[in-house]
Each structure stands twice: as structure tokens, then as C-alpha cells.
């Protein structure tokens, strides 16, 4: 615990001094705002671009506010997660590659504390970014498309947060395994895409699959909660805990790979 707090402070300082604490939230806020805004102005943009034949009447169904929030989440699922992977791919692999980890590894270091301090910091920044992004997006959706009950939005944010925590554990495990940052990003991206692909292809009846968490969030937004949502969340938490164990163990096992 003592080492966890010590290392947590180090990670916090790092994230402040490399500005991640500022630019990651900024990107999520932007993603949240841009989606409803472009949707709102899309008909006007198309009209003014003159690509429509003379006299054609442009009819496009106006999205509901719920659809807009789902679209924002889609942005987070693609660009948002990509940004998080790129931002944290080097967390462990980079320290080993550069040799900065060596001076920590020669000490009686708890690799559990080491891994968890990194996951906690990355997760806090990612979660705050996602929340701010959703709230900003929610405000814009309200402005352009109408109201959604705040409680519904908070539900979506809450459920999606579990998914983000799981993904961050995945990113850090990738960083513990890989010999360098690029490799870590490849492992994280690869796994992220493959689990979605597998779930999409074969997982029609896998109602407890954590991959369905974002989708459940959207379903709850528009109607009633899927009965499997809590089960899926439980499994996601369980998997996250397993990833902690895997990450600490791999980080320790790979300590010999640090540059001396």
C-alpha cells in the first residue's frame, strides 16, 4: 500500500508534466461536441456545397437525442479508445526500453503496486475524459436535438466506464508484455478489434460478454435495461482483476528485459 501511494504520486506527476492530464480530456470533449454539431449542420453543409441537383428536396431524418448520444459513444469506441491506447502504450514497455525502469527494478519493488499505480492513473484520466466528453456532448445534444433525462445519460456513462476500465487494464497488460511501445499498441489494438470481431461473429447468444457492455448502455438509454447487463459488468470486473494479476506477473517476469 505504501509503495502503491508512492508510485501513484510518481505517475500523477508524470501525467501532469507530459500534459496528458490536459490534452486527453480536451480530445474527448471535442469528440463529444463535434458529433452533434456536425449532425446538426450536415443538411446545411450539403445544401450549400451545391452537390445536390437543382430542385431536389433534401430530406434527412433528424436523429433523436438518444441516437446522438449513442453516436458520441461510437466516436469514443473508435477514435477515443485509439487515443487512449496511443497515450498509454508506453507506460511499462517504454520505461523498460529506455532503461528508466532499471533504477526502480533494482529496489525491493512490489510489482503489484507498480502495475496498479499505472493502471489507476491511466484509468482516472481516461474516465474523467470520457465523462467530460459525454457531458459536453450531452449539452450539445440538448442544444441541437432536444432533451434526454440526465439520469439516463449518467447510466450510460456509468456502464461505459466499466468498459473503459477494462480496456485500460488491457492496454497496460499489453505494455507489460511488449518489448516496446509500438508493439504494445499493436497488441492492445489487435486484442480490442479481435474480441469485438469474435463477439460480433459468434457471440450472438453470449449475453454476458463484456464486449456487449457499450451496446447494453445504449439499449438502456432508449428503453429498459437488458437483463444481462449486470452479469456482463460482473464478468468485465472479474476479467479486469485477472488482467491485474497477469499484468503484475508479466511486468515482474520481464524485469530482466530492462535496458541496463
Amino acid at each position: 500500500m505504501k509503495q502503491f501511494l508512492l508510485l501513484l504520486k510518481k505517475e500523477q506527476l508524470e501525467n501532469i508534466r507530459n500534459y496528458k492530464i490536459y490534452w486527453i480530456p480536451a480530445i474527448f470533449i471535442l469528440l463529444g461536441i463535434v458529433e452533434p454539431t456536425t449532425n446538426y449542420f450536415l443538411p446545411q453543409i450539403l445544401e450549400s456545397s451545391g452537390s445536390l441537383p437543382e430542385g431536389a428536396v433534401f430530406e434527412m431524418p433528424t436523429p433523436t437525442p438518444e441516437q446522438m448520444l449513442a453516436a458520441i459513444m461510437e466516436q469514443f469506441q473508435t477514435i477515443g479508445i485509439a487515443v487512449l491506447i496511443l497515450a498509454y502504450m508506453g507506460t511499462i514497455a517504454g520505461e523498460r526500453k529506455s532503461g528508466t525502469a532499471t533504477l526502480l527494478y533494482v529496489r525491493p519493488l512490489s510489482f503489484k503496486a507498480y502495475f496498479l499505480s499505472k493502471w489507476t492513473t491511466a484509468s482516472v484520466i481516461s474516465l474523467v475524459s470520457v465523462w467530460l466528453g459525454f457531458l459536453a456532448g450531452y449539452y450539445y445534444t440538448f442544444l441541437f436535438f432536444g432533451e434526454v433525462a440526465l439520469i439516463k445519460v449518467l447510466q450510460l456513462i456509468g456502464i461505459y466506464s466499466v468498459w473503459v476500465l477494462f480496456i485500460m487494464a488491457l492496454v497496460l497488460v499489453a505494455s507489460a508484455i511488449a518489448p516496446n511501445s509500438g508493439f504494445a499498441a499493436a497488441i492492445a489494438f489487435g486484442t480490442y478489434l479481435i474480441i469485438q470481431l469474435i463477439d460480433g461473429l459468434f457471440g450472438l447468444n453470449w449475453t454476458l460478454s463484456p464486449v456487449k457492455i457499450p451496446q447494453y448502455g445504449v439499449e438502456w438509454l432508449t428503453g429498459s435495461p437488458n437483463s444481462s447487463v449486470w452479469g456482463a459488468i460482473g464478468i468485465a470486473i472479474l476479467l479486469t482483476l485477472l488482467l491485474f494479476a497477469l499484468g503484475s506477473w508479466t511486468a515482474k517476469r520481464n524485469k530482466a528485459k530492462t535496458k541496463v
Partner: peptide
């Protein structure tokens, strides 16, 4: 020896000592 460039000398030695 490789150091975290964003830490000050005292911050690093203190961290090292505490670990």
C-alpha cells in the same frame, strides 16, 4: 543510468529512497 527526465533530482532520489 537512465532517469525520468520530468522529475527533479530531489524528487527522484526521494522516490528511490522510499521504495
Amino acid at each position: 543510468p537512465q532517469f525520468f527526465p520530468w522529475l527533479t533530482a530531489i524528487e527522484f532520489t526521494e522516490l528511490a529512497a522510499k521504495i
